Computed example of a mutant assay.
Amino acid sequence: MQFRETLLLISVSLFCLPTLASSPLTTVIGENMSAPWYFADSGTSPKGITADYVRALANELGRKIDILVLPKFRIREYSQKNKIDLNCYTSREWAQVREADVFWSEPLFTSKNLIVSNTAAVKSLDQLKKQRIGTVLKYRYPALQDSFSAGTFLRDDSPNEDANLQKLDASRFNYAVVEEIHLAYYLKRHKSSKIQRRGLVIEEIPVRCWLRRDSPLKISELNRAIAQMKTNGTMEKIFKKYR
């Protein structure tokens, strides 16, 4: 009898192992991200660069990754309540997570923030003193935070980068902060835009994933998958698709 009970327990345990190993992970995309990072009209299946490389990452890992689309303030709440396993469009400079709660992956790519103008090209930050600068609501700009706090530069917030550039084109202000890839995508769709094609690079930030420390996925597995995607050209193909 004892042997049969032991055998049954082993059988149940072995049956359950594949289910645990393949249980879905959960990640997140901020709903205020602009195209081509995220297309707000993509419905229940998120589209854009971020969703594409998350799905490629899932394929490389051999695991299912569910993508939630949430307001920025919800991302922090879900992170604190352990409802998200990983976030793969973030950095140590941007994230509002405790270092003790997460592991950080190797960089996926580098994000460049630029200052652009609807008049002459920006040569120096000295041009911006006491000027209103288009920014995205609740976004942190590490290179400009001290100047914003001191009132040297004046923030003018928009809900997302697309709205920010539209206000710049409408001359609501003369300067804006924008991510390089979004700027290129915006100008590709708005041929008559007044915005200068080149901007002043103010920061280059490695974009990484944070991974919850108690996630079933190991950080070493995540890093291997990221390295493979960069080596085999997957990341480059995804970015090329939206250029």
Rank of each mutant, 00 (worst) to 15 (best):
M1I: 12
Q2G: 15
Q2V: 15
E5F: 12
T6M: 12
L7M: 14
I10P: 02
V12Q: 12
C16H: 12
L17D: 08
P18G: 09
T19P: 00
S23P: 02
P24V: 08
V28I: 12
V28P: 00
G30P: 01
G30C: 04
E31P: 01
M33E: 07
M33D: 05
P36W: 04
Y38C: 03
S42W: 04
S42E: 12
G43I: 06
P46H: 10
P46E: 11
G48K: 04
G48L: 03
I49A: 02
D52C: 02
Y53A: 06
V54I: 15
A56K: 10
L57S: 05
G62V: 06
K64Y: 07
D66F: 09
I67P: 01
P71D: 08
S79E: 00
T90C: 03
T90D: 01
S91T: 05
W94T: 00
W94N: 00
Q96R: 00
Q96D: 00
V97N: 00
R98Q: 01
F103P: 01
W104M: 06
S105D: 05
E106V: 13
T110K: 10
L114V: 10
V116R: 02
N118V: 09
A120L: 12
S124M: 06
S124Y: 10
Q127W: 09
L128T: 10
I133M: 08
Y139V: 02
Y139L: 05
R140N: 07
P142V: 07
A143K: 10
A150R: 14
A150G: 03
G151E: 10
G151T: 14
T152A: 11
T152G: 04
P159I: 15
D162E: 15
Q166K: 11
A170V: 05
R172P: 03
A176Y: 04
V177D: 01
E179F: 01
E180T: 08
L183A: 07
Y186A: 03
R189Q: 15
H190F: 10
H190M: 02
K191W: 08
S192H: 13
S193D: 09
K194Y: 07
K194G: 02
I195K: 07
L200Y: 08
E203K: 08
E203G: 10
E204I: 05
V207W: 01
R208Y: 06
W210E: 00
S215L: 09
P216M: 11
P216L: 12
E221C: 03
N223T: 13
A227Y: 08
Q228F: 09
K230H: 12
T231M: 11
K237S: 15
R243V: 10
